Simulated assay, not measured.
Amino acid sequence: MLCSVLAGVYNEVLLKGAESAKRGVTTNLQNAFMYCQSILVNGVILIWEGKAGDAVSAENRAAIASFKVFAIISIMSSVGLVTGFFLKHLDSVLKAVASALEVVFTMLLGFLLFGAPLGLSGLTSATLVGAGVALYARPVPVRPLPEDELKIV
């Protein structure tokens, strides 16, 4: 999770940095770097824990080569690409709201498409996400300034 957060922050710096346009760093290039970093870190962790052989075993490759896993990989890859475009044009707070909504939609689509069970923890998280989005979407009340603060300089 730490690597993901650091990659997201670094990606935002690349996207919104003043020099990014001069360096020719496109959204697709940044997404490629972020995915490569994730692959590299996961590979290092598998080797460190001595589970690299298990990860590439024949039975694990067979489990990965199914339609359902391919569909999940495709959906999550498209989410990653959309995240890059969110960060390009919006701020990280709206990206966090989109990620929170992603949790809810992933749970619901997993239930509808793959028959994944809806447990109490999933429903609780969906409720918390919904409450958080509702709080964020509330309009901020604008208070009028007192007359003594309306002085023209």
Rank of each mutant, 00 (worst) to 15 (best):
V69I: 14
A32H: 09
L109F: 15
L108D: 01
V142P: 00
L123C: 12
L145A: 14
V69R: 07
T124G: 06
V129W: 00
G119T: 15
A63L: 13
F70L: 11
T83S: 14
A21R: 06
W48M: 09
V133F: 02
E49G: 07
A21P: 00
F67T: 15
E12W: 10
L101G: 09
A32D: 07
L40H: 05
I152H: 08
E59P: 00
L29V: 12
D91W: 01
Y35D: 07
A116M: 09
E59A: 08
K16I: 04
G24M: 00
C36S: 13
E19W: 02
A65D: 14
P139Q: 07
L135M: 11
V56D: 04
I73C: 12
T27G: 01
V5E: 08
L87E: 00
V140L: 10
K151R: 13
I73T: 10
K88F: 02
Y10S: 12
Q30G: 11
V142A: 12
S66P: 04
H89L: 04
L128G: 06
A18Y: 04
L120K: 12
A100H: 06
L112A: 13
E59M: 03
P146F: 01
L29C: 02
G132V: 04
V104R: 03
W48G: 05
G80Q: 02
A55D: 05
C36F: 14
I64K: 01
N28T: 13
G80T: 08
L128I: 13
A71Y: 09
S121P: 00
V142R: 06
F33M: 12
V79R: 01
G84L: 01
Y35S: 09
V104N: 02
L120Y: 11
E19A: 05
E147L: 06
I152T: 12
A100R: 01
F67A: 14
H89M: 05
T106R: 04
A62I: 05
Q37R: 08
L123G: 13
S125F: 03
I64Y: 14
P144E: 13
G110E: 02
A32I: 15
A100T: 14
L6W: 07
V93R: 10
V97A: 08
L109H: 06
M107P: 01
S66Q: 12
N42Q: 10
P141K: 06
R143E: 15
L14K: 03
L46T: 05
L2H: 07
L2D: 11
A98D: 03
L108Q: 04
N60C: 06
L14M: 10
A134Y: 09
